[in-house]
Design a protein around this nucleic acid. Structure first.
Length: 272
DNA sequence: CGCCAGGCCTGCACGC
DNA sequence: TGCGTGCAGGCCTGGC
């Protein structure tokens, strides 16, 4: 469910509740995530202080002394805070009980998410090492996008969803950013000129920033760390709007499949 | 019942 | 040969 804005919304909600707290106990109810949850995670975490909650791409990083608890929410994950004693529901796989009275709980029905422990620098972990620039960093710029797309014959939408090119852009925001830039999602990436690279960097950032400001998008049951729904889904220009009129020109929004993912665009505003 | 869903890794085929 | 790229498959459950 979560793309970068939803993960960032979660991080911002949780950070003040967990920073500086000490982990009192850990409950793992189901270790079978995308990778198995480490068997000795409770032993490792208990008694540790959470120094900071950071984000890299769609990964949440609980910095704790000489290591980091890495959490990825996959397709259906949600991380929020409950009060001690709150009965776990089905798919509540993981709890972190803090000494400040908060219990951080992970729910992930599809279990495409991850819970990992990394000693030392978390960015050295194999899964994080290869991730491309953060979309709001200077490293993600038009020159980078231009260079990185020269050898790619595949669709531009697939390119910007590649976490090695830019971190955090998922299926929804890829369609939205391309709409804002007036770029057809099927356009071969290598055919994107310098000017359109400038435009796309700008709209990727603006789309993600607007979604974060709205508290993320609430598709299905996505809620933030306080259980509140985001409302960016009300601001979608094209995502999930096939058959409806383009809000800019009135042309019927179309959908197609690119890279096995549903894609939405306006055939007039994004003619090429 | 079948189909679809917000992620992303792996393995394979292919071309330079 | 080695590397980058492109694609399919797989991991799971829930909702329509």
């Amino acid at each position: 469910m979560p793309e970068l804005p939803e993960v960032e919304t979660t991080r911002r909600g949780l950070e003040p509740l967990v920073r500086g707290a000490t982990i009192g106990s850990v409950v793992v109810r189901n270790r079978a995530m995308r990778q198995p949850v480490p068997r000795d995670l409770a032993r490792i975490l208990t008694g540790r202080r959470i120094d900071a909650l950071e984000r890299r791409g769609k990964y949440l990083l609980f910095r704790a002394g000489d290591g980091t608890l890495i959490v990825h929410l996959g397709m259906s994950g949600r991380l929020w805070v409950v009060t001690p004693g709150t009965a776990p529901a089905t798919h509540d796989h993981f709890d972190l009980a803090l000494d400040n009275g908060h219990v951080v709980r992970l729910r992930d029905p599809r279990r495409f998410g991850l819970v990992l422990w990394q000693r030392g620098d978390p960015l050295a972990h194999k899964l994080l090492r290869a991730i491309g620039p953060e979309p709001f960093s200077n490293a993600f710029n038009a020159e980078w996008l231009y260079r990185e797309t020269r050898s790619r014959s595949g669709a531009i939408k697939n390119a910007i969803m590649d976490s090695h090119l830019v971190a955090g852009v998922g299926n929804i925001y890829a369609s939205e950013a391309l709409f804002r830039a007036g770029i057809n999602p099927k356009l071969p990436a290598r055919r994107l000129g310098p000017a359109r690279c400038v435009a796309l960097v700008e709209t990727v950032r603006a789309t993600l920033a607007d979604a974060i400001a709205a508290g993320g998008s609430s598709l299905r049951d996505y809620v933030n760390s306080k259980g509140e729904a985001g409302y960016f889904q009300n601001n979608f220009s094209v995502y999930d709007r096939a058959g409806k009129p383009c809000l800019t020109c009135g042309t019927t929004i179309r959908s197609l499949v690119l890279g096995q993912r549903s894609t939405f665009y306006c055939p007039r505003c994004q003619a090429r």
